[in-house]
Design a protein around this nucleic acid. Structure first.
Lengths: 253, 253
DNA sequence: GAGTGGTCTAGACCACGTG
DNA sequence: ACGTGGTCTAGACCACTCA
């Protein structure tokens, strides 16, 4: 024996709580059901509220719970699958699924964006704001950066801003030949403006999808889209030519 | 005046702290540098340690900081780009980049996995464990589930387990014709075993990449890979036929 | 053993949604 | 007005790393 190892080697309370609650959610609760409030739950499990909250936080991160201030904690539905890089094999705005243009302005992008686009550090680019909903809920907010050189014919445009201008910019960009796209996904936290659009608090976890649109051997546009990490599962199309049907979203409980 | 609105409408302290620290990291700290300890930092900013920790947690989530118990908090390097769905346009184990087979056992998978594979609820499948490192650091742990029906000729195998057996299974699966793959990405938290392999604490945020391998009109294998969310940026190949060279990973600071 | 981050407590007050 | 989750405090102790 020597090191007699107890089964749990001092598992943190919040982690054990998470496990217990997960099992309870699987077996005893229906989607949408309201849980007891945090103070009651904490008392029931004999822990401080902060500890209970740590467990709930985990479960919300995993998409099992949804918490809303002033309302309560409810059991979340399974994550919704959101297609990325498939719905528009072409330029943004083409077949026009998913994304809703909000507005467009001419602005100097962050340094990181400018570097990818190859524009000068003080050079303004078209910045199209779009939003995406799924099943009535907002799931993503996007900033689409397009250098002026990508849309040279966009000079005499009537709308100074707003959705009309956004659509005009998207219309112009479609005239370019799209050679390819590159996606990357990373974890981030929602900034204040994104958070508001996604109906979350600042700092909420988001999946940041960065897409480079390639045309003429260079990056003709750059999209930075932030998806709600708690409610979304991003799906990427098959890399082969075969498209597969696999029924509605399901998840074994 | 009526509702005289101050500029910050009561921004939470931890969020403001996060902003201040972000700027400090951008301008005054080098990668790898050690920050003052949490108690000192909290005192310096005039907040409780818990509040300071909330800000640090955010920054760690965003990949800006790295915290290690007993050691300290250091400035993290930029996230490393990790190719997904490109390094093996073929079956796992083919060109053999990235993934290291660890072992393989015959076990009954979780219900959710069984459902996708179309196997019975008590049917055992080959479960290959693999790990992936990048720049000397572990970045991902994978469980590759392969129904016995996908590798029918794998009966008289010598190795009962271990890396040798894992390689044998991967060798067999390559004989199938790969028709396509489907990836999905979602946020999760590391379970105890994954956490240990990734050198993180249980509950650490991870990006869960689920890949369906399609052959013969059905799912011939299912991979569930968990990537460290703090250190990884997942990259997906261009969906067009064009492959683009874009130099080594870079990010504007 | 000294110093670090990780966990936990028992309170308090605030912001928000709903009746 | 009330009940909810969100923020914040000032402590305590634990687990880990390293000299």
């Amino acid at each position: 024996m020597g090191t007699t190892q107890l089964e749990s080697v001092a598992e943190p309370k919040y982690w054990h709580l998470r496990t217990v609650l997960t099992e309870a959610l699987d077996s005893e609760f229906a989607v949408g059901e309201i849980l007891p409030n945090e103070r009651d739950l904490a008392a029931r499990f004999g822990v401080a509220r902060a500890t209970l909250r740590q467990a709930l936080e985990q479960l919300e991160l995993e998409g099992r719970l949804q918490r809303r201030r002033g309302v309560g904690t409810t059991v979340a539905p399974p994550r919704v699958g959101v297609a990325v890089g498939t719905e528009h094999h072409a330029w943004p705005g083409s077949a026009e699924d998913a994304w809703q243009p909000v507005d467009s302005v001419l602005a100097v992008p962050p340094a990181a964006v400018a570097e990818v686009l190859g524009t000068g550090p003080d050079e303004a680019v078209h910045t199209v704001r779009r939003s995406r909903t799924s099943q009535g809920q907002p799931v993503a907010a996007e900033l689409l950066h397009i250098p002026r050189s990508s849309v040279p014919d966009l000079s005499a445009i009537d709308a100074p801003s707003g959705a009309a201008r956004a659509r005009a910019v998207l219309r112009e960009v479609q005239r370019l030949e799209l050679e390819g796209r590159e996606n990357s996904v990373e974890l981030g936290s929602a900034r204040a403006d994104d958070a508001k659009e996604l109906d979350r608090l600042p700092g909420a976890p988001v999946l940041v999808v960065t897409t480079r649109f390639l045309s003429g051997g260079r990056v003709a546009a750059l999209s930075v889209a932030t998806y709600r990490a708690d409610t979304c599962r991003l799906t990427f199309g098959a890399s082969g030519g075969v498209e597969i049907h696999h029924g509605p979203q399901q998840r074994a409980s």
